[in-house]
Simulated assay, not measured.
Amino acid sequence: MKNLKRRWQLGKVRPGDGSALPDYRLWQLFSRSVLFLDLVTPSGETHVYAVDVRHMVDAKTRKQHEDAVGKSPAALYRDGVQIHRSNLPTSFPVPGGVIEVATSAFGLKRIHFVAEDGTERALRPHDRSQEGLRARFDRRFPRTSAVVGAVTLLILLAALVVNVMNGIEALTRAPAIAEYVGRFVSPVDLPTWGTVAGVLSAVERATRLRFNRLIDTVSS
């Protein structure tokens, strides 16, 4: 299944237009992610690959977005020159493996180099991006960073429990089900501030490339 998925994603990749990697601007903090990968070729040459991800471009507007500004949701650059572009999720071919890129509603959920032997490593974020700022915060204040990470995880787990209970309540409203198992009433309703906290927690985890399909999707 992984091989089929990768072939499908590789089939979406198109040639780049040869343009230069645009500079990262401060106002792009929540709309753009740029991450880098240094690779050494068998001949000993070192190339810097960069993946430029444009957020806030949904499936319905991607074609118009490309036609209007000449950009795809994701593009691969080698030494600052665009060589590939693609819709998301995608897998960009690079020497010795692929770069897998996927996003969620809250930001990046995966951007890793997967070598031919199966080993993986995350790409290095641009210093000015939200991923780069979060990584810098982690390096400067590791203990505080760990506490923040633990708190966001606890918030999402609590939101997950509440959402599951609300789902059971909605399910048992059906007469056919309530007749056999009774009507379940959730003792807790997720307040507005709880929803906001869940979204912010999911965004924080996305800046650290932490994504769990159950926790980060169902609970937010």
Rank of each mutant, 00 (worst) to 15 (best):
E120Y: 00
V13G: 03
D138R: 14
D23K: 13
T152A: 15
G70N: 05
T144P: 01
K60I: 02
E179S: 12
V164I: 14
D58S: 13
P95M: 00
A174L: 11
T103V: 14
A50N: 11
A115D: 07
H84G: 05
F113K: 08
H55S: 09
W193V: 12
E179N: 13
V185G: 03
R210P: 03
T152N: 12
I99T: 06
G107N: 04
L76V: 00
G167N: 05
S86L: 02
H65M: 15
T217K: 06
H84S: 12
A74S: 15
V69R: 13
R6M: 06
G198E: 09
D127M: 09
S31W: 03
I83E: 14
G16F: 05
P15Q: 14
G80T: 00
S31M: 03
R210I: 05
D23H: 02
D67Q: 10
L214S: 04
I168K: 06
R54P: 01
G80S: 03
V188W: 11
F92L: 07
S19E: 04
R25C: 09
R62W: 07
E204D: 11
S43I: 04
F36Y: 15
S43R: 15
G149M: 01
N163C: 11
G107P: 13
G70S: 09
P15K: 15
H126K: 06
R136Y: 00
W27H: 15
K71Q: 12
V51Q: 09
N212R: 08
R25A: 14
T46S: 11
S43A: 13
A135M: 09
K71R: 10
P89Y: 00
V203L: 11
D127W: 06
G194I: 01
R134M: 13
S31Q: 08
Y24I: 10
T195N: 09
L214V: 12
V81Y: 02
R128V: 07
K109M: 12
L190T: 07
L171I: 06
E116N: 15
L154S: 09
H55T: 01
R208A: 15
T192V: 05
L200T: 07
F92C: 08
R173V: 03
S186F: 01
S219R: 05
T217A: 08
S201P: 10
F106H: 14
V34M: 10
R183L: 13
S86V: 02
S31R: 12
A135K: 08
A178L: 10
A174C: 02
P73M: 00
V164L: 11
